[in-house]
């Protein structure tokens, strides 16, 4: 059975599984992930409270840093990579992301549109009297 596991290990990856490397390299991988995550987190906390950058760019910067940090977590902690043995996991992730963007983007779009075209609530209440 263990021999078979080895064969599977070379063919495919479970999400969260890593390639077979030494313990030291694996710890190093997590340490790199941790260091990158700390740098990205510290940057976004710094940017949120600073006056050093152009103010309207702050929300964009925070969102970009958040997406970068999610990528770091995916690669270094969940070990979702774009290798050939990881295709199924990446396809599922891509579909999940599609739904997430549809839900968030769609909701914001539709609600902003309604907000623009509808009367304010107090006027609607008055019309109903």
């Amino acid at each position: 059975m263990s021999e078979l596991d080895e064969v599977h290990r070379r063919l495919e990856h479970a999400p969260g599984d890593e390639e077979q490397v030494s313990v030291r390299l694996r710890v190093l991988g997590y340490l790199i992930g941790l260091a990158l995550a700390i740098v990205l987190t510290a940057t976004s906390f710094f940017i949120a409270g600073t006056d050093l950058v152009w103010q309207p760019s702050i929300p964009v910067a925070i969102i970009v840093l958040a997406i970068a940090q999610m990528g770091v977590h995916l690669v270094f902690f969940l070990h979702i990579t774009t290798g050939a043995d990881n295709t199924n996991n990446v396809m599922a992730l891509a579909f999940g992301l599609l739904i997430v963007f549809l839900v968030i983007g769609g909701s914001l779009w539709i609600m902003a549109n309604l907000n623009q075209h509808m009367l304010p609530m107090d006027q609607i209440m008055q019309m109903q009297r």
């Binding site: 479970a14 199924n88 999940g96």
Partner: peptide, 20 residues
């Protein structure tokens, strides 16, 4: 695929639905 890969993949799909 081996049981470990199937289990991990199924749980990955659950996690993605949780993210949705």
């Amino acid at each position: 695929a081996s049981k470990r890969i199937v289990t991990g993949y199924g749980f990955w799909i659950f996690l993605l639905s949780d993210m949705v």
